[in-house]
Simulated assay, not measured.
Amino acid sequence: MRSGSPRLYGVYLGGLLGPFGAGVVVAMLPELAASYGTSPAGAASSLTVYLVPFAAIMLVSGTLGERWGVVRTLRFAYAAYAATALLALVAPWFWLFLTARGLQGAANAFITPLLLAQLAAVTPRDRLGRALGLFAAMQALGHTTAPLVGGLAAELSWPWAFAGIAVTALALAAAPLPADPAAGERVDWRSVVRPSVVPGVLVLVGWGCLSGLSFLVAFRLEDVFELSSGPRGLALTVFGAAGFLTARLSGAYADRFGPVAALATGLLGGGAVVAVLGLAGSLPVLVAAWAAGGVVAQLISVGTNTLVITRAGAARNGAISVVQALRFLGMACSPLAFTGLYHADPRLAFLVPAAVLVAATPILVRAR
Rank of each mutant, 00 (worst) to 15 (best):
V49E: 13
P147Y: 06
V296E: 12
T304E: 13
A254S: 14
D180S: 01
A91P: 02
V192H: 03
L134Q: 09
V273L: 00
A88I: 03
F20C: 06
V352M: 05
L216T: 01
L116P: 00
A117D: 14
G313R: 02
A136K: 03
L277T: 01
S196T: 13
L170S: 08
S301W: 14
G10C: 08
R130F: 09
F54I: 04
L236N: 05
R125Y: 14
V24H: 05
S301V: 13
L299Q: 14
L364Q: 13
S321K: 06
A349R: 03
L348G: 09
A344Y: 10
P176F: 11
Q118M: 14
A174Y: 07
A252E: 14
V352L: 12
S334N: 07
A100V: 06
G69V: 04
S157I: 12
V60R: 08
W160F: 15
P113N: 03
P259I: 02
G281Q: 15
A107Y: 01
F215A: 05
L128W: 04
T339C: 06
L13R: 09
V217L: 03
L204K: 06
A106V: 08
A218K: 04
L210C: 09
V322F: 10
A107G: 04
V192F: 00
L348C: 02
G200W: 14
L204P: 00
D255W: 00
A77L: 04
A241Q: 07
C209S: 15
G266Q: 03
L245N: 08
A100R: 08
V238S: 15
P19C: 14
L221P: 10
L307Y: 12
A367S: 12
R67C: 06
G318V: 03
L98C: 03
V302E: 06
A85T: 08
P231Q: 12
V71T: 09
E66G: 13
I363R: 11
G278D: 04
P195G: 07
T63C: 02
R311F: 07
G102H: 05
A107Q: 00
L134E: 08
T38C: 02
L116F: 13
P176Y: 07
R101M: 10
I320L: 15
F328I: 02
G142W: 11
P181W: 07
F225D: 07
T168C: 11
F94G: 05
A137P: 01
G151N: 10
T144Q: 09
L357S: 13
L204V: 12
L134I: 07
W207L: 15
P178D: 06
T84L: 03
L156R: 12
L277Y: 06
L128C: 00
P147M: 11
